[in-house]
Design a binder for these strands. Structure first.
Lengths: 229, 229
DNA sequence: TCTTGTTAGATTGTCGACAATCTGCTTGTC
DNA sequence: GACAAGCAGATTGTCGACAATCTAACAAGA
């Protein structure tokens, strides 16, 4: 019998589809921070009842991108400068740990996948598709987590990623100019292929800091706007 | 006007109460790993409809202590040795980070709270209340996270704590003998009061390893039992 | 004018019933 | 006896309606 790996079939519940739809809307910035989600309106738009919609919302609340106040409503989480700083500083620590765990697991398949994802980033960059650019970049960074062989770490990172993606999207949206077309991941990929783990960890930190500077500037703008109200 | 700090009023939704009830049942081991949660039966026992119960379950699924399979049911997560190892190794990294962040924030209030929580552990130990012993020990360890002033880190740890508490409870439940009455936190507390941060971090790691050895032995038993089926 | 009480409208929380799906048993066929 | 098809029961997923609660506007009184 020919050996064939089947991927798991898609979730067939409305709930799962609603979660995907809402998550995408939030992470791409179509739903803005602080915005209220009206259950009746959304359920009518999606042509579903409120039950699966509400269950989906509970999931996203636990995922940390929605926040719920009883009898008041469910809102897209507000983003403060502090949140971005916190997420990034934790991300640094986790990245270092992930690289350490993944390091001995690296093999040809790892390198191939690394190249594949790097290529996806470059392609999105060429196409000037900012949303996809963010997605692919995070997927590139996610590879070490997937290879770290630590389910809890991977899950933690995926939760963190949700917010990072949201922050990036907001950032991109805020500034009207297009994203830089240069490829900042060249060194990162090269180091992950190399033999100096410490160097790779160090670069991951510095690389993150680089993006961080821009994001932080955006965050400060948020703060200023908030203090006006 | 006298200055008075009001704490936020309790959540008044059935959903929130159900979450608390179920979480407690799982973390204390009353609901065993792999066990199926029958919605109709539970909703009748609690005298609520299935809607808030299901929403509560979604939250606990995202929290990582329940797992759901569409049209099949919702189950208490299975615990494998690998899960315990993964959770603990991540916990070590986070502990080190938390201590680093909390270190410059320490003040008299921190030390007072540290003593208070330490006292709570000792009291639970004297009373041979194993469930409470686990709870208080985790709260003691949680202090540095609360003082680290990083919301994302704190939230991550709280999620991790859920599982750790569950693992400990299962462990305690598995062995019939009572828990050791000695106090293993004396050194931990002393080091957090001291001036050598590295020493405190190092001890946190080793201390965790200590508990870990016992837990791992339990985990191996689980593996053996699983392989029989 | 400021505060307090009231009320109407909108929105969230909860309920009971129905639809979709799964599981295990039974039946029939070879 | 082995195996597939089909049926019945139980359980989960979804729906529409009702109850509880909040918000904002308005009225009444100090």
């Amino acid at each position: 019998m020919a050996k064939l790996d089947f991927s798991p079939i898609a979730d067939t519940t409305r709930r799962a589809e609603i979660v995907a739809l809402l998550r995408r809307a939030i992470l791409t910035g179509q739903l803005e921070p602080g915005q209220k989600l009206n259950e009746l309106r959304i359920s009518e738009q999606m042509r579903v009842s409120r039950a699966p919609l509400r269950e989906a919302m509970r999931e996203l609340v636990q995922e940390g991108i929605l926040t719920s106040i009883p009898y008041a409503g469910t809102f897209v989480v507000d983003v403060a400068a502090k949140d971005i700083i916190d997420a990034y500083s934790l991300n640094k620590v986790l990245d270092e740990f992930a690289i350490e765990l993944a390091w001995p697991q690296r093999n040809q398949r790892f390198f191939d996948e690394l190249d594949r994802r790097h290529e996806a980033v470059k392609q999105a960059t060429r196409a000037v598709d900012t949303t996809r650019q963010i997605e692919t970049a995070l997927q590139l960074h996610g590879l070490v987590y997937e290879w770290a062989d630590n389910a809890v770490l991977l899950e933690t990172w995926q939760r963190l990623t949700s917010r990072l993606q949201m922050y990036f999207a907001l950032h991109q949206r805020a500034r009207n100019e297009p994203v830089p077309a240069e490829d900042v991941h060249e060194t990162y990929v090269a180091l992950l292929k190399g033999s100096d783990m410490r160097a790779a960890q160090r670069h991951a930190r510095e690389h993150i800091d680089l993006d961080f500077e821009e994001l932080l500037a955006y965050a400060r703008g948020l703060e200023k706007r908030a203090s006006k109200n």
